[in-house]
């Protein structure tokens, strides 16, 4: 996954949207992406009913209840153009997959336009969080997955009394998580993550 993250621009140049898929939940995916150094392309939760998408592609392993390690390249018209399963313990060769994507684009990508660029993050921002808070963790993981560590300062109001007073001054209450960007104050973790995602991705 980190290898694919590093090559995002080249997959985009081949008009290819990369999507990771496993049976884990979206929250588990967020933590895993964070642990991998930040994954900005979608990690999809094939979670409920478990493995339904993997089963539709014939890639669910009933015994262990997990998904095979497999790659499917689908052209813009929804037709499968490349499939490879390497087994759960196998490895993918990302450069090779990129060359397959480029070949698919050459043959089936006529008329596709260049992608819109993500607008990027603007303005200094502070993310106030609490310790031992799932909502705070969710926003922190999004910050990591979208590579916003240098753009968004983090302050922990459970550990830092000055930060708590600062938050109360800016937001009128000490509730965290809270993202403050200039005059914009967001308290809902879903709203905070949606703002980050809208700035940093093109979908």
């Amino acid at each position: 996954m980190p290898g694919v993250e590093r090559l995002q621009a080249r997959f985009a140049a081949a008009h290819t949207q990369v999507l990771g898929v496993s049976v884990d939940s979206k929250f588990c995916h967020a933590g895993w992406g964070d642990a991998l150094g930040g994954i900005s392309f979608p990690l999809l939760a094939d979670f409920q009913p478990k493995g339904a998408t993997a089963k539709a592609y014939g890639l669910f392993l009933d015994g262990p209840g997990i998904t095979d390690r497999a790659t499917v390249i689908i052209d813009k018209d929804g037709v499968v153009r490349w499939v490879e399963a390497v087994g759960p313990g196998g490895e993918r060769e990302i450069e090779t997959l990129l060359s397959h994507c480029e070949a698919v684009d050459k043959e089936h990508g006529a008329g596709l336009s260049a992608w819109p660029k993500a607008k990027g993050w603007s303005g200094p921002a502070t993310l106030y969080v609490k310790s031992n808070c799932g909502f705070s963790s969710w926003t922190l993981q999004a910050r990591s997955n979208l590579h916003l560590e240098s753009a968004i300062t983090v302050k922990n109001v459970s550990e830092d009394a000055a930060a708590k007073r600062e938050l109360e001054g800016k937001a009128g209450k000490g509730q965290a998580p809270c993202l403050v960007t200039g005059d914009d104050v967001l308290h809902e973790s879903a709203d905070i993550i949606a703002k980050m995602t809208a700035a940093m991705t093109d979908i």
Partner: peptide, 15 residues
């Protein structure tokens, strides 16, 4: 559909 190709990376499990 009609906008991008898609590469699905199925993998066993997080962590």
């Amino acid at each position: 559909k009609g906008k991008r190709h898609v590469m699905l990376l199925f993998y066993p499990l997080d962590f």
